[in-house]
Write a protein that binds this DNA or RNA. Structure first.
Lengths: 353, 353
DNA sequence: CTGAAAGCGCTTACAG
DNA sequence: CTGAAAGCGCTTACAG
């Protein structure tokens, strides 16, 4: 636990000199090369590592940014998609010298302050909020934390927000369903009371916009609960080759695939399946899934950049952004007779940025 | 940005009094209730939140713990299993008032210090290392960080380590494969040069221990690369109803499932599939997968507790732990004729702690 | 019961 | 070229 003071006394110089040398300001402080070298050697010998806390205190900034993820009480569910974003955020911040501190909070059962020291004390330069929080929590956050970036959140305004273009995702999936020539189109999503995240309504709206103007009805299917065997089976029995199911999320796509398998139905052969969302490594785990791609890691990286600009007070650089994806047709969809569309014929251009 | 000093001057008391009141030490400091109340009111009005950095500096502890996860250079892969553990760690530490700071490091291309401020400065009370690091990195970490807990890591010694009993996982899967009566048993794992994580050799050893003493050969299959279509197809073609494939990880189980589907084979009906590993929410996404369960969130929670004890210097309480799982038979395996085992007949007792 | 003051380990304006 | 000293915002031993 060496300190500048100890190094200074060993080297026979002042604390000032040590500080300047170790922070590479020898020229501006015009410290002789010989002295600088001696100081560096001693610091090295003493295995010196600066006390980040003292530095933060002096400089009035912590070089720490929080990442807030939501949690349902007592739920151990680890949302793998959130993790992709977190890693992107981490990459962008870590290389800029920032530490990323994680916090996971319950809905509103308890005050923020009781849940994490992040809210009780001042320890952050800013916070990236992932996913949506109840409106009153969002407001409280802005009072407590100096700079907030809203990532994949319901919060949307001119500055400081970044999200996927979810309506585009819905449109791309809906358009593909139509142009592949399926006679019947359904969508699996959450029941209305669980559609609080903006992606639920936007993806649905995007799908509707492509399907309904053509006079095709869109049937809405709700994912049955894990233990609701009768409804799971019933849903699986409905699947047939002229039906394409558009899944809101990859969770629902995976769940539907499993339900289908239980009655020996395979996506692509026995029904069409396309997903509005994407997950990294799907190219390894389920390469055949037709889907609208999205790079969540990249979104995290962008959120980190936005945070850094916000900390640097470059407000104009923090204009909110909406990120696009593109259609990827795999083996879970097939062109139907008379669709006039080849296997990958419905591929659309990536959305603009 | 109120400070104790400002509150003190407004309240007409000393900084000492404010500090004692706001840290709930009014009795020991014998501060009158009226004064205490006045101070609290003013602090509230000024929206006071203590400066965590100043507090940390004064107390000589940061109340921050790092979590280190490995990364392959340039790889965006978000390891969902690691995230489960991270959330468990976070739960245990957050409620004890600690902040969890994430760091992700490359192999050894660059020094630790260049990769995260966590290593360059002193900002942590301890670190939980997730997964395995190269041996020289592990050694360096112990020099740099005051207290380390090794979670799911190759590092194994009497104190400060926590991991799954991977050999037990292999044994449970192997035992099930045998007792279900499959005539042929294979295992999908990584090629030998990628078996550096201890789970690779331990799961394999566990499977072998149950299969080979019975005179049953264990065929080793290597997961083909994502783009290696011929080998993927070849592997899929080999699948048949008398063969059970034991998958090392859920990634390989998912990949195999997809390969099988491409040739219209369904696990359970057209081949047996059992996995040595588990993932949260598989009950929703793939409830039918036969597997050896494991609660990674719980492992993270335990790692957090171990860290807290280590910080409190309760060394005896930090004895290393090996956590068990149990067999769960779903629909991807079926009892073969003459196995003498019912559908769920091979269920084993949970392993000890 | 309460307060003035030291000190945690840095950085930097100021003075030689 | 270099150093003594102030100060960031807390906590707490010491003195009334």
């Amino acid at each position: 636990m060496a300190t500048l003071k100890e190094i200074a006394s060993r080297a026979g110089v002042s604390v000032y000199t040590v500080s300047k040398v170790l922070s590479d300001q020898t020229e501006s402080a015009r410290i002789s090369a010989a002295r600088a070298e001696a100081v560096r050697r001693i610091a090295q010998e003493m295995n010196f590592r600066p006390n980040g806390v003292a530095r933060a205190m002096r400089q009035g900034r912590t070089l720490q940014v929080g990442v807030l993820v939501p949690n349902n009480p007592g739920n151990r569910f680890a949302h793998p998609l959130a993790y992709e974003t977190i890693l992107g955020i981490n990459e962008g911040l870590q290389q800029a010298g920032y530490l990323v501190a994680l916090a996971r909070i319950d809905d509103v059962r308890r005050g923020l302050e009781e849940q994490s020291r992040m809210f009780k004390e001042r320890v952050l330069d800013g916070m990236i909020v992932l996913d949506s929080m109840p409106a009153d929590v969002e407001q409280r956050l802005e009072e407590i934390i100096p700079k907030c970036v809203w990532c994949d959140s319901n919060m949307w305004r001119e500055h400081g927000c970044i999200r996927r273009d979810e309506e585009q995702a819905g449109r791309l999936a809906g358009e593909a369903a139509v142009s592949l020539g399926y006679r019947q189109i359904a969508m699996v999503t959450y029941s209305p009371e669980y559609r609080s995240h903006f992606s639920a309504s936007e993806r649905l709206a995007g799908v509707r916009a492509m399907v309904e103007p053509l006079g095709r009805p869109l049937e809405i299917l709700i994912e049955p609960g894990v233990a609701d065997m009768p409804r799971r089976r019933q849903l699986a029995e409905q699947l047939h080759p002229e039906l394409i199911v558009i899944c809101h999320s990859i969770y629902q796509a995976q769940a539907l695939r499993s339900m289908g398998e239980e009655v020996e139905k395979i996506a692509g052969r026995d029904y069409g399946l396309i997903c509005c969302d994407d997950m990294h490594q799907l190219d390894r785990l389920w390469p055949g899934l037709s889907r609208v791609t999205f790079d969540r890691y990249g979104m995290g990286l962008e959120a980190a950049r936005m945070m850094l600009k916000m900390i640097a007070s470059e407000k104009t650089a923090c204009v909110s952004r909406r990120l696009g994806g593109e259609l990827l047709l795999g083996t879970t969809t097939r062109a139907r007779d008379g669709s006039g569309t080849g296997r990958n014929g419905a591929a659309a251009a990536p959305a603009g940025e």
